[in-house]
């Protein structure tokens, strides 16, 4: 009986894992916890064909800027298309993640001197399911 329960639990866990959409790490920035925070601007717009979210972090949030860069590092591993440019003032990364037959575009720009970060996620709503 224990074996049956264990097997069933594993099956249920597998189903749950498959059923839940594979969320990007950067999507955690848009869970509402940064809305209304000083020095942070958040934009979210969702229509039938476009789901766009962006966050801009201004000076005075070095920890959050570091956190955003780490989250991007996690999602880059899943990218099918990746472009990175470095300059004295800017570090920019743009990449695409395929999911559910659609493409998710992610872009992040880090302004080194101004300690500012801009990040956006964009795609069809179905891409995030």
């Amino acid at each position: 009986m224990k074996k049956s329960i264990l097997t069933l639990c594993m099956l249920v866990c597998a189903i749950l894992a498959y059923a839940k959409p594979p969320r990007l790490a950067v999507e955690s920035l848009f869970d509402g916890s940064y809305n209304g925070k000083k020095g942070i601007s958040v934009t979210t717009v969702k229509s039938e064909k476009n789901y766009f979210r962006s966050i801009e972090v201004r000076e005075g949030n070095p920890d959050l800027i570091n956190k955003i860069e780490k989250l991007v590092d996690e999602d880059v591993k899943r990218a099918s298309n990746f472009t990175e440019t470095h300059s004295e003032k800017i570090h920019e990364r743009v990449f695409q993640i395929p999911n559910n037959g659609k493409t998710i575009n992610v872009g992040v720009t880090v302004y080194r001197l101004k300690q500012r970060v801009e990040l956006f996620i964009q795609g069809y709503p179905e891409a995030f399911k």
């Binding site: 601007s41 934009t43 717009v45 229509s47 766009f52 962006s54």
Partner: peptide, 28 residues
Amino acid sequence: TYLVYVDGAKVDDRAEAEAIIRADIDKA
């Protein structure tokens, strides 16, 4: 449908929010 915060303050004015959204999308 949409939600806009600028420097921690929520933007309730629809026209202003749409302008900000347009600017962010253009930047992207």
